[in-house]
Structures are given as C-alpha cells and as structure tokens.
Simulated scan of single mutants.
Amino acid sequence: MPVSDADLSVEAADDGPRALAEALSAEHAAVYGYEFAGGAGGGLDYRTRAGEAALVHKALRDELHGLAVASGVRLKPAPAWYPLPEERGDEALDAFLLGLEEDTARAYAWLSSARDTDLRTTGARNLQGAAVRVLELGGDPGALPGFDAA
C-alpha cells in the first residue's frame, strides 16, 4: 500500500522531556548514592574518589535541572531517600555505584534520541562520561552504552 503525504507528515511524539526527567532522576540517585558511599567506604582514598564523583554528578544534576526549567519541563520532586546496599565493604559499594552509573547511561542513551538538539547533545556527551565511569568501576558498558543486551 503506498504511503500518502498525510502519513509522512505524522511525527512521533518527542520523548525528550520524559528522557530529560529520567536523566535528572538518575542523577539525583547518583548524588545520593555517591555521598552515601563516600561516608560508608573504607579508606580516605575511597572517600575522596566517591566525594569527587558526587561533585561530578551534582554538576550534571544541576545542568539537567537548568535545561528542564529552561524548556518548561514539569518535574516531580526528588525522593527524600533512595535504596542503599546492606553491605558496606568497598567491593559491595563499588557494585552499588556501578548500578547507578549503568542507570545514568541508560537515561542518557534515551536523552540522546531527543528531537531538541541541546538535549540530544547533552545526552550523547553525558553518555560518554557515564560509559567511562562504568569502566572505572570495573563494568562493561557494551558496544552501545546504556542499552541492555537482547
């Protein structure tokens, strides 16, 4: 059946605002998680690395919040708490942080598909950063970071 001009003019809904809200939510969780890990981690080096990563995620959170406000995206308030790991050893904390980074990678992969060029660029740039952090924590970001293997 031939495609009509009317069919070509129909555009799919833009998930950019929802993807932006999801990425912001992932960053809120990452800030919370890294600050927790910094307090619960073993030595000074661990606490320092977690604190530095928390600062990176705070900057990303603030950037996304600014984009959301500028584009008129209505946001839900961040939760007062997030699930935390029961074990407090550095290895368990690293596994917990790896999960947070994988969550941010998935959110940024989604954001990188937004129609808005600024959102798409922000998603792609931050996906790269999340992939690096996944590697630093011993994870495998995969060929397409943020996408689960089928």
Rank of each mutant, 00 (worst) to 15 (best):
E27G: 03
A54G: 14
A50N: 12
A26T: 00
R18P: 00
F36D: 00
A68T: 08
A29V: 00
A40G: 14
A21V: 06
D62I: 13
R61A: 03
L64G: 08
E27F: 09
D14W: 02
A40F: 09
L55R: 13
A29D: 07
R61N: 10
R18G: 04
L55E: 15
Y46N: 00
D62T: 15
D15S: 04
L55D: 13
L60K: 07
L44Y: 12
L67F: 09
A19R: 00
L60H: 09
A29T: 00
A50S: 14
G41Y: 04
H28C: 12
R47H: 11
A30M: 02
A26F: 03
G41P: 03
T48F: 15
Y32E: 11
L44T: 11
G66F: 03
A29E: 12
L24Y: 05
A23F: 01
D15V: 05
R61M: 01
A29H: 01
Y46C: 12
R18H: 06
A59C: 07
S25Y: 02
D14T: 05
P17C: 01
G51I: 05
A68N: 07
T48D: 14
A26P: 00
R47N: 08
F36M: 07
V56N: 06
E52R: 13
G41Q: 06
K58R: 15
T48P: 01
E52K: 13
D45Y: 12
G39C: 10
A54Y: 13
A30D: 04
L55F: 09
A23N: 05
G42E: 04
E27N: 09
A68F: 01
A59F: 00
A54C: 14
Y32F: 15
R18Y: 09
K58L: 14
R49C: 01
A23T: 04
A40C: 13
A37Y: 03
G33Q: 02
E63R: 15
L24V: 06
R61L: 00
K58E: 08
G33K: 01
Y34L: 11
L60F: 02
A37S: 14
H28A: 10
K58T: 14
D62Q: 15
A59M: 07
G66I: 02
R49V: 05
E22L: 11
Y34A: 09
